[in-house]
Amino acid sequence: MSPAAEPARAPASVEDRFEYVLRLGDTSLIAAQRLGALLGHGPALEEDLALGNIALDLLGQARLLLALAGRIEGRGRDEDALAFLRDAGQFRNMALAEQPDGDFAETIVRQCLLDAWRLETYESLAGSQDRELADIAEKALKECRYHWRFSAGWLVRLGDGTAESHARTCAALEKLWRFTDELLSADALDARMAVCGIGPAPALIRERWETRVSAALAEAKLERPAHRHYPWHGKRGVHTEHLGHLLAEMQFLPRAYPGVSW
């Protein structure tokens, strides 16, 4: 098809762009908060540092994304206002990110499933029509490659480890697998963002995620859990009960002491 014959891309609405960037920013923010809560509780000093480093990477991504969302919205909210002054129903993170740390196997499985999604999503977003979003994705991509290397490495080590570590990892997979459908199933907003060239083609993300995760599961000698119906829609603000508790802790200080700074 010649460029002239191509149907004109309708520009995305401000509301759509805002919501879409919130999904990415909130997912990184909530994951960072979960990992940050593990500081001092890692199974070894070195793992503690590794998880803390990853939390800081994710927090940095969240900061850039939420600042961008605030600029798109154009109502004077900066990244702090968005992170600390919204309630659970206004958060747009994937429900997987808010799931509790649980035991180390649960933490690793959650990170692994999310890291694969984030890596493939940012890989695509690096070519987004939205230049600012593309720049953030490109910067985040290097971090995401390491996150995947870390979490997939642990998945294999735990899955193909002792009987105990294998059993715990299987249990974590069974528990968390139902949240993966949200990552991969496009809703109307995902579809609109793909059409206007800002977001990735949803089918592509699903295919690449499946390939990546299946290979890691096989290497870890873990069975892929059966597909489960998915009743949560964190990216549309319908969360599990865990998010409210997480926010109560995360938002306490700025809410109790408005305008406080270092």
Binding site: A44, L45, E46, E47, L49, A50, N53, Y146, R149, F150, G153, R157
Partner: peptide
């Protein structure tokens, strides 16, 4: 020095501990 279960983990720990 640091502790790790295998060489690959040692490399990752070294990255996280000594090149931050």
């Amino acid at each position: 020095s640091l502790h790790a279960a295998d060489a690959r983990m040692a490399l990752e720990h070294a990255r996280d501990t000594y090149t931050r």
